[in-house]
Structures are given as structure tokens and as C-alpha cells.
Amino acid sequence: MTMLARLVRYRVTVILGLTLLVASLTVPGFLSISTLSLGLDRGATIGIIATGMTVLLIARQIDLSVGSTFALAGITAVMLQPAIGIWPAALAGVLAGAAAGAINGLLSVVFKVNALVATLATMLIFRSIAHWLTDSQPVPGTDIMLSVALSKIYLEIFTLRSALFVGAILLLHVWLTRTVAGRNLFAVGSNADAAEASGIAPGRTVFLAFVFAGALAGVAGVLQSLTTNTGSPVFGAELIVTVIAAVVVGGTRIEGGRGSALGTLGGVLTIAALTTAMEFQSVPAYIQQVVSGLILILLVVLDRTVRPGPRTHAAAGASG
């Protein structure tokens, strides 16, 4: 049991190692620097969103609307380009993401709507707005060359996206482990009442967590739209399972109060390695979905069964 528990704790390293091993054995040239760079760039979109999701899951909340926020932010960034220029438009896109997060926070903190249901509703609402703004057509950006510039590879491995992701994860790690606010987040997630009794405002913490997650989904969406020079209302429709899978692989618990930024980094790298390996083997997209679904379910089951601690029925029904 303790052996198994230890395995579960360091599972990110184990799973990542196994994935890389299997991938390098089955895919020729997988461990070359260009493949790794490509994989990292692919993972960056999921990773930036997962960074925000880590904070939310630690705070015992969840955001199902990140995929829609992702699309909406990208569309905002592309559609405003002719009017206010590329960089202000990009900033507006990120702000749109933050605003979407604020709406989620408002619904869940002020109106007390269960986060799962609230973000289920806003997922539908934001996606509808995205379709509405664009007439359900992809919108082209103004500067095609920008996407080339954004895809430039620095230091042989980082693109702008992947550098941003790794930077954000490292900052989050420092924030979670070294600051009072970071520790407060864990307190709110594991026991909101106790946190409140110790003088933390859980409502404010949760609200800010939603804004943070929304803003990061916005950043990912803006980057996606700038690199593809397109804003599309269908972007990000299937991100959510992969994002949650990445965060959960990294050891962050859906029940709140436990998680780490470096774990999420490991989870994202695992998912990125898997996706890249499967794409190299031309595995169809729906099989890739099956794999990320299986990983998610397996790890959540592992979390529930192996980790010692009280198991209550309430946790099954209402952990939002």
C-alpha cells in the first residue's frame, strides 16, 4: 500500500518516463531536438490553459468553459486588428478572457451557482457569442507574416508559446510554494470554512482564481489565433478533456486542496509526448481522444482508491 501510494505520488515522473521510452522505441527520431520542440509547442496551448486550471482545481473549483473562452479571446484579438492594431487587439483578447473568467467567478461566488453548472452554462454562452460575432465563419487576421515570426524557434527548442508556458508554470510554482497568497489558495481548497475562520476571504480567492484561469485561456487563444492568423468559433471545442487530463496526471486533485505547478508541467509534457507520438504514427484524432479519456479516468480512479483518507459520499456528489 505505501509502495503503491509512493508510486502514485511520483506518478508524473513515472508516466512521463514510460511515455518517452515507449514513444522513442516506436517512433524513429522521436528524441531529436526538432521533434521535442514541436511537441513542446503543441503542448503549450494545453499547458497555458492547464496552468490556470491547476489554480482553479486547487481552489476546489473547475472551469468547463475554457475552450469557449479560448475561441472567444482569439476572435476578439483577430477581429479588432484592423481597428486598433495587432498588439492592442491581442491585449483586448486577453482581457476578454479575463472578463469571461470574471463572469464565471461572479456566477459561482456571488450567485452561488455550483462551478460545474455555472461554467457549463457559460461554455454554451461564450461559444454562442463566438459564433454570433463571426457568423460561424473563420476570420482572417491582417498580417500573415506575424504567424511566421511567432513560430520562430529560439535556443533550438522554445517557441514564443512554449517559452511563455514554461515561464508561467515556473512563476506559478514559486507563487504556490513561496507566497502567503499561494498557501491561502490551498487552505481555501481543502477547507473553505477553516480558511475563513483563519481570516482568509474564500470568495475573493475563488473569484480571482476564475479570473486568472480565464485570462490564461485568453492568452492561449490569442496566441493560437496569431500563429494561425485566424479566429475561429470552433477553436478549442475539444480542449477541456485534455486539459483536465493533463492537470490530473500531474497529481492535482479534483477534490481540491492538493496540487502542484511542476506536476502540471509533467502532465502537459506527458500529454504532448503522447499526442506527438500518435500523430507521427498517424493515429486518427478520435483514438487520441479515447487515449486522453482513458488516462483521465484511470488516474481519477487511482486517486480515489489508493490515497489514504476519509472517503465520503458527499465528495462524490458535490465537490464543486
Binding site: 473547475i62 468547463l64 460545474l116 477541456i240 478533456v241 483536465i244 487530463a245 479534483i254 477534490e255 486518427p284 478520435y286 483514438i287 487520441q288 481522444q289 479515447v290 486522453s292 479519456g293 482513458l294 483521465l296 479516468i297 481519477v300 480512479v301 480515489r304 482508491t305 472517503r311 459520499h313 465528495a315 462524490a316 456528489g317 465537490s319 464543486g320
Partner: peptide, 27 residues
């Protein structure tokens, strides 16, 4: 079974199972 017996959050369980089932049916 995942929700009632293992105690997994229903949204996560059905999201995951749904993704898997849809993939398998497509395959």
C-alpha cells in the same frame, strides 16, 4: 460504477467515459 461505487465526480466521469465511448464508436 465509477460514480456510485468508486466515488468519482459525475461530471468528470461522464466527460471521460463519453470521450472514450465516442472515440470507440467512431473507430
Amino acid at each position: 460504477l465509477l460514480i456510485g461505487y468508486v466515488g468519482i465526480n459525475p461530471i468528470i466521469a461522464t466527460l471521460g467515459v463519453g470521450t472514450i465511448v465516442l472515440g470507440i464508436v467512431q473507430a
